[in-house]
């Protein structure tokens, strides 16, 4: 199974990036094979709007089942949820620590959109 982690760096020692849609890139980690690839998210990082949903589409195309990030907005969250992807929250730790915590069931699962993009 593959999982996606938002990050500002390029490797497993890089920190988990708190933002989802405007993260610099994603590490797509394969739990069985223990290998990863890096998915660039620069286009969405600089998008005027809709960064979250397009980032969600990209991780869905990469066929992940789990996303680990700091905050995930409602549009992206609903898109992921409808596609059967779970979102877990992590912040202030490295990608590899986040993977370990996920594997030991220690990460908090996001049940609903915690940060609303255009709330009025």
């Amino acid at each position: 199974m593959k999982i996606a982690l938002s990050t500002s760096g390029h490797c497993l020692g890089s920190p988990v990036e708190s933002r989802f849609g405007r993260a610099s890139r994603f590490i797509i980690y394969d739990l069985e094979k223990e290998i990863f690839e890096v998915l660039d998210n620069k286009v969405n990082m600089n998008a005027p709007q809709g960064a979250g949903v397009q980032a969600a589409a990209n991780v869905l195309i990469a066929e992940v089942k789990v996303v680990i990030t700091g905050h995930c907005g409602p549009k992206a969250f609903n898109l992921l949820k409808n596609a059967g992807v779970s979102v877990y929250l992590a912040e202030g730790i490295s990608v590899s620590e986040a993977i370990k915590l996920y594997q030991s069931n220690s990460l908090k699962k996001q049940e609903s959109a915690d940060v609303d993009g255009h709330w009025q």
Binding site: Q49, G50, V53, A57, I61, L79, A83, G117, H118
Partner: peptide, 17 residues
């Protein structure tokens, strides 16, 4: 231009955007 269409085999329109 507004990232309002997500494409996963078929387009999904996001009216908020």
């Amino acid at each position: 231009a507004f990232n309002a269409i997500v494409f996963l085999k078929k387009p999904l329109f996001l009216p908020d955007l």
